[in-house]
Design a protein around this nucleic acid. Structure first.
Length: 504
RNA sequence: CGGGCCGUGGCUCAGCUUGGUAGAGCGCCUCGUUCGGGACGAGGAGGCCGCGGGUUCGAAUCCCGCCGGCCCGACCA
């Protein structure tokens, strides 16, 4: 007997396994033969394409242009910034040879390189070297570039979309004349990410600064947007770094200033990755599969022709085709509606469930009875799967875009309510510990959330809490009026509450 | 990189203790009946049992080595 839900186990039974299953059920991606790498399939890649399109527009609108820098970084470049090397050394893939030869029936690498090449884990150093060549005068600044690329970080514990050895991302790299200008840029891009997460991915995020312990290697300040997913863990969904003059000194990005002196430029970098997809899936999915926010969905509507009788089949298919083309003339979010017409010869129930699992926002059934009545049956992915509303064809054509907008708003509201429900101000060690301790240690149930708790700013407290409870400071939120208090771990004064959580 | 568990059709697994050359369910293909919410019947395809070596007349099964995966720790967008 089939269970009532499409996905087994359910979220509450085993969240990590549920995640693996929804990715598979939606046909988004699969693991490849190389450990930690993934094949992103069309339904999954379409999400990345949409995100990329929207973000790219936002970057252009804030004055950036795209460029492309090499995959390979000379080892000597990476070595220039001490903290940076230390942060990334353990996870670097390194190319040492440039030729293969057949020996004893086996292909072996030969032709050792004089200098090993690091496959970029991020591009600060190689882009810094380019900026050093390009920047001579204050008139050459700012440099505002972005690149869409793949990067490699040799991770020990890969998870589809959340942490893979190779992943797709964008990295913005800018160089400025003044500290103030670079700081402003860092925060501007952080706000772009916040807006994108909220308005497109329907993800409410906490915006703030990382503690020193969580800072990007080589950065002076690291800012982040932090999301909560349905197991109440935090996930860093985007980062923006103020790099000070660390990298410009390491890469020698110098310019002659307005008063004739020689100064080092101030740089920033900022990025989001395919992790955004994983975050979105874990935030919105349910026990029937993924749920796609319409503004980034791989497609908006699927039309499911119902053809129970041979004699009405042709008429139903014709009506479905006509509906598809009329819908494709409609616009949602400024772009033509993406419509799938599923005429495959498989059982109606099976077909319907496939699209539920794939998270498409709207399913439209059209069958012989609809033909007689001039209606269609519309189901929303954000509502129980048996709920249908009957609209006339005219109404459907006119109203589907507005329903998509409603789904988008509903997903955000839902995610916001969830996050609020599991965010608590906590002022005592006991309550903090209870909040982050599962009732069943053998098989931990979903527990915890965001704790807004005071912190004295010391690394010692941060390390102790992490060692005791695996809970870390996710971000020091921007606040209008920080509320001073007492750090419950040390008893020392604290300037403001920070967000603590278990995290991905 | 340390500790534990596991590698058998596409997937989930049985068989291994007591060696005799491979099975189930799901999925897939064909035909028929179905189809407005995960259909049913009949037939069929598909496996060097992770890899290498050893013991043996004979190895999925026993022994040794290697590789890979999962979970737990350390690290991470």
């Amino acid at each position: 007997m089939k269970s009532q839900n499409a996905i087994s186990p359910t979220r509450s039974e085993d969240f990590p396994e549920w995640f693996q299953q929804i990715v598979r059920a939606a046909d988004l991606a699969e693991n490849s033969e190389v450990r930690g790498c993934m094949v992103i399939k069309p339904w999954g890649y379409a999400l990345w394409e949409r995100m990329r399109w929207v973000l790219d527009g936002m970057f252009k609108a804030t004055g950036h242009r795209n460029a492309y820098f090499p995959l390979f970084i000379p080892l000597s470049h990476l070595a220039r910034e001490a903290a940076h090397v230390e942060g990334f050394a353990k996870e670097c893939a390194v190319v040492t040879h440039h030729r293969l030869e057949m020996r004893d029936g086996k292909l072996v690498p030969v032709g050792e390189l004089t200098e090993p090449l690091v496959v970029r884990p991020t591009s600060e150093t190689i882009i810094g070297a380019a900026y050093a060549r390009w920047v001579k005068s204050w008139r050459d600044l700012p440099v505002l570039l972005n690149q869409w690329a793949n990067v490699v970080r040799w991770e020990m514990r890969p998870r589809l979309f959340l942490r893979t050895a190779e992943f797709l991302w964008q990295e913005g790299h800018t160089a400025h004349e003044t500290r103030a200008e670079a700081e402003e840029e860092t925060l501007r891009m952080l706000r772009v990410y916040e807006r994108f997460a909220r308005e497109y991915l329907a993800l409410p995020v906490c915006v703030g600064e990382k503690s020193a312990g969580e800072r990007f290697p080589g950065a002076e300040r690291t800012y982040c947007i932090e999301a909560m997913v349905q197991d109440r863990k935090a996930i860093q969904a985007g980062t923006s770094h103020f790099l000070g003059q660390n990298f410009s000194k390491a890469s020698d990005i110098k310019f002659q200033s307005r008063d004739g002196g020689i100064e080092h430029a101030w740089t920033t970098s900022w990025g989001v990755s395919t992790r955004l997809i994983g975050t979105m899936l874990m935030a919105h999915g349910d026990d029937d599969g993924i749920i796609l926010p319409p503004r980034v969905a791989s497609a908006h509507v699927v039309i499911l022709p119902i053809t129970p009788k041979e004699e009405s089949r042709a008429a139903v298919l014709a009506a479905a085709t006509d509906l598809a083309s009329r819908l494709r003339d409609q616009r949602f979010d400024g772009l033509p509606l993406e419509v799938e017409l599923d005429t495959r010869d498989v059982g109606g129930g099976v077909k319907n469930w496939e699209w539920i699992k794939k998270g498409i926002p709207l399913r439209v059934e059209i069958g012989p009875r609809d033909l007689e009545q001039g209606t269609v049956a519309v189901s929303r992915r954000d509502q129980p799967h048996k709920t249908k509303s009957f609209l006339t064809v005219e109404e459907a054509v006119a109203r589907l875009p507005e329903i998509l907008g409603d789904i988008q708003a509903n997903l955000l509201a839902r995610a916001e309510a969830f996050q609020n429900e599991h965010t608590r101000k906590i002022d005592s060690q006991e309550e903090f510990k209870a909040f982050f301790t599962p009732k069943n240690p053998e098989k931990p149930e979903i527990h915890g959330g965001f704790a807004l708790t005071h912190w004295d700013g010391s690394a010692a407290v941060e390390e102790q809490v992490k060692a005791d409870l695996k809970v870390t400071i996710r971000c020091i939120p921007f606040e209008e009026a920080p509320e001073p208090g007492i750090c419950p771990f040390s008893g020392n004064p604290s300037p403001q509450r920070v967000i603590w959580a278990k995290s991905y």
